[in-house]
Design a protein around this nucleic acid. Sequence first.
DNA 1: TGCCAGGCGCACA
DNA 2: TGTGCGCATGGC
Length: 296
Amino acid sequence: VRDYDLGATLTSGQAFRWEYHTGGWDGVIGSRWVRLTPLSGGICAEAASDINDWSWLTAYLETETDLGSVLATFPADEPMRRAVATCRGLRLLRQEPWECLASFILSSTKQIVQIQQIVRSVCQCFGAPVQTPPGRPHACAFPAAERLAAVSESELRACKMGFRAPYLRAAAQAVASGSLNLAKLADLDSAAARAQLERLPGVGPKIANCVLLFAYGFQDAFPVDVWVARALRELYFPSRRVKLKRLLHFSQTHFGPFSGYAQQYLFHYMRRQAGRLQSSLPENQPDAPPSQRLRR
DNA sequence: TGCCAGGCGCACA
DNA sequence: TGTGCGCATGGC
């Protein structure tokens, strides 16, 4: 695959289970451990066992997406031009819905590095072990909804998720009981699917939109968090005090059919800009991947 | 030490 | 309908 910035994609706040080690990214997709290494013009994938059919990985990475045709739909304004120039190769992933929903329930008022810590803890405490290559540390799958539904709130709180614990537990119970059928959301339009997700306590428009975009591929889902709101204000309304409602309307009308993709470019662009302001500081570990350790 | 984080729910005006 | 606050925790 060409035009694919693996590092930007895996660190852009879509997924929280990828860990950088010596030139590549280790993670777990479903019940499979996998290591991804960027190559010139492609991505090298290593698994823990022989695999003939890699469609689960290409689907996750969305390698079939023609990025050029997506970027061509973006509005031809200066902010988007700068975001694309800075983040070219950034992609959207297609994640498993339950893991995506649970992860973003845990994301509320957390920095990405903290979300990674909580998700790691949840997987280590409640996830099933997965096979890893010899010499690699053990790894766990993201725990199924049925597993988390059977866990007490205090056990969840032990993973440092705080007030999010009852929200995660309620979501797990809804999915495990069948009162929320995540598979069927794919058959709905985005508004109906969003309404289903927002029935869950702790899931509002932002988290619902993240799930619609990162798990189901609804391209019109446009999550607005503090970073995206800041991006819209600074890049499009720099001299005005614009209210959130106005920003939401703007987000739904300005960015075209792949507005969710455009949103991710703005999000990552703002975070990179924030990181660049700090880049004069002594650099992090020599082995650290770019754009990982960002400050406000 | 204080600010803030890929928010949400709720009380109150 | 809009606004402000509390929630739990930890990185910076």
